[in-house]
Design a protein around this nucleic acid. Structure first.
Length: 895
RNA sequence: GCCCGGGUGGCGGAAUGGUAGACGCCGGGGACUUAAAAUCCCCUCUCUUCGGGGGUGCGGGUUCGAGUCCCGCCCCGGGCACCA
């Protein structure tokens, strides 16, 4: 029987498992290589063919590096906390744990069938108490730290200097001072509360529920926050040394959003309070004609005059009920709303009183939640001023730096670019940048402001009102004065395991589900456990560290293992994690670095985002009014090349490619592909589709070509008689004929170079050429050539490669065989092709013997070209103006 | 709107500024076969008066030479979005 993947693949998978072929141990004598996949959330629907694209790529690199002599760490695990299991539990009553481990089993079965070289002895799941024990431990490190601005690093909270005046106020004040400085703190943060469902919704869930008719309001709730903002600058700076895609670097920089400007203090008329605003354009201060506070701003209640109170309250109330979506839709249309408070502020540069408004285009979460409005030079302020009839003043004119001489009418539109200051007192005539510097210095002198750097990045809202997450290892301890203190349960009490409950719904009052497990919440000493749980990000923030030492019972990892394996040399995963997962993991890593628990500043040295695998749906060629109709492969019939009709209605359809998703119905299950073609073919096709980073459609016809190639490779070494079992062919020793040797060594060189630059599709193309051409001259492949080929094939199609290797008489796996080296002497051909161009157009080519060295023998080569028929024909008796010679490539005669 | 990618045959895609279309799919022709499948070989951008001409989203430019570099557009994908 010819190439039978169903027989070969399970056999080698069993062999690898039995021999623990891929088990990795710290070995200081060998260089290490840590290659990591973003571990998956084990969803109920299992893998689709999109998942294995990245996994295949890392597996190729892992196998290649092993053969290159590296000690390779290539682990896999499960990001297994998450909402779907909890939703499933509410619906069916099945405990999330049970459901989660079912799903893990299914994922693991599917991954095992693909023959990935994971060290399964290192498998971890974030839901395992032995794992989340250490997630809780890391949280305690963060909670137990403060950020020392002077040293620019986190330090243990016990090292926080307590000011004498705080000390004097007693224990309560000291405790409050410490709590305020911790990297994890409690804060009243606004959340999306849905009273109908009694749950807090993630931002992306809001639209869905509102559409379903549920009310969602922003209400403040006491939440755990992490001070990631303290790390904003380091999170930007340390991006410089990473080998990451530019798009991800850019997205991270924008997310952190550093901007330079000034903080300016405005005194209030008839009030003792001050108003602080952040601006990137202090040079436009003379053009500030009003101020705007966010509706949530704490000063709103105090400064509003009685006559305006009713209108202001109504506006504040309305804002709380407006969904993000509403506000965004209005913003997109440039609509501005707001209400005058009746109060005035004093512009510090000219002592003019200007009115204070509230409007929801000012966000409480950015800057100080208040702005000075300069309608002449800011489009948003301009739109607002126009709507409300507020004055517009021009204080910047186009100057030599930008738009010199352009006509500007700020009544019509804001001029938001740089220029020269006008109508601006002490900075008149200065270019915008100089004006900024001068006015900022002046403000500082007057005590009315200072230079300031601001970031978009907010502190990380770290608690969730869910059951299926890590419990916080904290308790609220009652104090004699009636208050409560937050205390650690102590490292010895870890893990704090989730209590068994049968109801996973939140309580009527909106308390998290854990609050109902009273036996767990209430401790003998009167303390109450924290009932929030951690977000799903928590487990994925440090799993790459646990992989270094996954069974360590005494510590999250040993410094020996961490020192040896870290950092991750290659990290591959989807672009959807470009911002949050990577930012959060980098943040935790830096805290751990500051506290001396890890040795590298950054966790992931090289990052690659694999592209999406697209699935097909079919849509009507002419889309009628009404809901969109889409059809899946089962509904359609192909009546001609690229022409499809609905199999019942005969309506013409066109094919449409989208990201694969269960809801679209365009997923392809790897189980089916493997059953038909085998894992090696599947892996090969995943890589052959195109560059790793690019998205590509899954076209089942294309899989054939890869299957054909493997069958050919199999036939090179196996004889399949009609009657009887396959048997290895008798092969002569050596690397075959001269031509075959050259082909082999060229293939070795090409495949090596292409794997190194992760161009797997072209590496596979080299292997295909080898198999196609090796027997062009009737001679069977040589034994040694076959061995080298098996090794080259091994990273891509490991099962077949092992089978071929064994057919050549080896009894061991080829996993650790040294990678073949190309003999440079055999890469030089007898002749090389010289292209002859006339005026840049190809007119002929010449075979030049390799005895004429392309670099040395320039004159002789050019002479031959000039004597060629092509030159004779296209140059004739014209005199060449110039002759360009590109060594080893071409001669271009310019006439 | 802003920030990243990308646009090459019927399709997926190759191509350090130097022969555009490697490799594979689909399609066509042939060999083998009673036949089919499988396999093997050949052809497969386009026009052509068979000399050659044209062609990498569009329009310019740099260069002896541009898919590749520069400028201005168009289209597609991804991300962000009232961030002061």
């Amino acid at each position: 029987m010819p190439y039978d993947h169903a027989k070969i693949e399970p056999r080698w998978q069993a062999f690898w498992a039995e021999h623990e072929t891929f088990k990795a141990e710290v070995d200081l004598a060998k260089p290490k290589y840590y290659v990591l996949d973003m571990f998956p959330y084990p969803s109920g629907s299992g893998l689709h063919v999109g998942h294995p694209e990245g996994y295949t790529a890392t597996d190729i690199v892992a196998r290649y590096k092993r053969m290159r002599g590296f000690n390779v760490l290539h682990p896999m695990g499960w990001d297994s906390f998450g909402l779907p299991a909890e939703r499933y539990a509410m619906k069916t009553g099945t405990h999330p744990r049970e459901r989660t481990y079912e799903c893990i089993d299914n994922f693991k079965r599917q991954l095992a069938m693909l023959g990935f070289s994971y060290d399964w002895s290192r498998e971890i799941a974030t839901t395992d108490p032995e794992y989340y024990k250490w997630t809780q431990w890391i949280f305690l490190q963060i909670w137990g730290s403060w950020y020392d601005e002077e040293q620019g690093r986190a330090r243990p909270i016990r090292e926080l200097p307590i000011p004498a005046e705080v000390e004097a106020e007693g224990d309560g004040a000291v405790r409050a001072y410490r709590d305020a400085h911790r990297l994890a703190y409690l804060h009243e943060a606004p959340v999306n509360w849905c009273p109908d469902l009694r749950v807090v919704l993630a931002n992306e869930e809001v639209a869905e529920q509102v559409e379903a008719g549920h009310e969602v309001i922003r209400v403040p709730m006491r939440q755990w926050m992490l001070k990631i903002t303290k790390y904003a600058q380091r999170l930007i700076d340390d991006l410089d040394d990473l080998d990451w895609p530019t798009s991800v670097l850019e997205m991270q920089r924008h997310w952190i959003g550093r901007s330079e400007g000034a903080e300016v203090v405005f005194e209030l008329a008839n009030h003792d309070e001050q108003l602080r605003v952040f601006t990137t354009r202090p040079d436009t201060l003379f053009g500030a004609t009003y101020m705007v506070l966010a509706p949530e701003h704490p000063l709103v209640g105090q400064i509003t005059v009685d006559a305006q109170r009713e209108a202001v309250n109504a506006y504040v109330e309305a804002t709380a009920h407006r969904t993000e979506r509403d506000r965004q839709a209005a913003a997109a249309e440039g609509q501005k709303t707001g209400v005058f408070t009746g109060a005035h502020a004093i512009n510090p540069v000219n002592d003019q009183p200007i009115p204070i408004w509230i409007a929801d285009y000012v966000l409480m979460g950015y800057g100080t939640g208040a702005i000075m409005a300069v309608p002449g030079h800011d489009v948003r302020d301009h739109a607002f001023a126009t709507t409300m009839g507020l004055p517009i003043v021009q204080v910047v004119a186009p100057g030599p730096e930008a738009n010199d001489g352009a006509a500007v009418n700020v009544e019509e539109a804001a001029y938001s670019e740089l220029g020269v200051a006008i109508n601006s007192g002490l900075i008149d005539g200065l270019a915008s940048d100089d004006a900024k510097a001068k006015i900022t210095a002046w403000l500082a002198e007057q005590g009315k402001g200072e230079a300031r750097v601001n970031y978009k990045l907010r502190d990380w809202l770290f608690s969730r009102q869910r059951y299926w997450g890590e419990p916080f290892p904290l308790v609220h301890k009652p104090l004699p004065d009636g208050g409560a203190e937050v205390a650690s349960v102590g490292v010895d009490a870890l893990p704090v395991e989730l209590p068994e409950v049968d109801d996973f719904n939140p309580s009527d009052s909106g308390e998290p589900p854990l609050a109902k497990a009273t036996a767990w919440v209430e401790l003998p000493d009167g303390s109450r456990r924290e009932t929030n749980t951690m977000p799903q990000w928590a487990g994925s923030c440090w799993y790459y560290l646990r992989f270094c030492d996954p069974r360590n019972a005494d510590a999250p990892w040993s410094s020996e293992a961490e020192n040896y394996w870290m950092p991750v040399d290659l990290y591959i995963g989807g672009a959807e994690h470009a911002v949050l997962h990577l930012l959060y993991a980098r943040f935790w890593h830096k805290v751990l670095f500051d506290l001396g628990h890890v040795s590298t500043r950054e966790p992931f040295q090289k990052l690659i985002n694999q592209g999406m695998v697209l699935g097909a749906t079919y849509v009507p060629e002419t889309q009628a009014e009404g809901p969109k109709r889409i059809f899946v492969a089962d509904d359609i019939e192909e009546i001609g090349e690229g022409q499809y009709v609905h199999k019942d209605t005969r309506e013409p359809l066109t094919i449409q490619w989208d990201k694969m998703s269960k809801s679209r119905g365009n997923v392809v299950n790897p189980d089916d592909v493997i059953a038909q073609y085998g894992a090696d073919t599947m892996r090969l096709y995943e890589m052959f589709m195109g560059p790793l980073e690019a998205s590509a459609p899954w076209q089942p016809e294309g899989v054939n070509g890869c299957a054909r190639f493997l069958a050919r490779a199999y036939r090179l070494l196996f004889d399949s008689p009609k009657d009887g079992d396959d048997r290895p062919r008798e092969l002569a020793a050596g690397e075959g004929s001269e031509r075959q040797r050259r082909l082999l060594h060229r293939t070795i060189a090409e495949v090596s170079e292409r794997i190194e630059r992760m161009s797997f599709n072209t590496a596979i193309s080299s292997l295909m050429v080898f198999v196609r051409d090796i027997e062009k001259d009737d001679e069977r492949i040589g034994r040694d050539a076959a061995a080298r080929f098996s090794q080259l094939l091994a990273p891509f199609a490991p099962h077949l490669a092992e089978e071929l290797w064994r057919a050549l008489g080896h009894s061991e796996s080829l996993t650790y065989e040294p990678w073949p080296e190309a003999d440079p002497a055999l890469l030089v051909e007898d002749t090389w092709t010289l292209v002859v161009q006339v005026n840049g157009k190809k007119r002929g080519e010449l075979e030049i013997p390799s005895s004429l060295d392309p670099k040395q023998a320039k004159d002789a080569i050019v002479e031959q070209a000039m004597a060629s028929e092509a030159v004779a024909r296209f140059v004739g008796d014209k005199t060449p103006k110039r002759v360009i010679y590109v060594p080893g490539r071409l001669v271009n005669v310019v006439v």
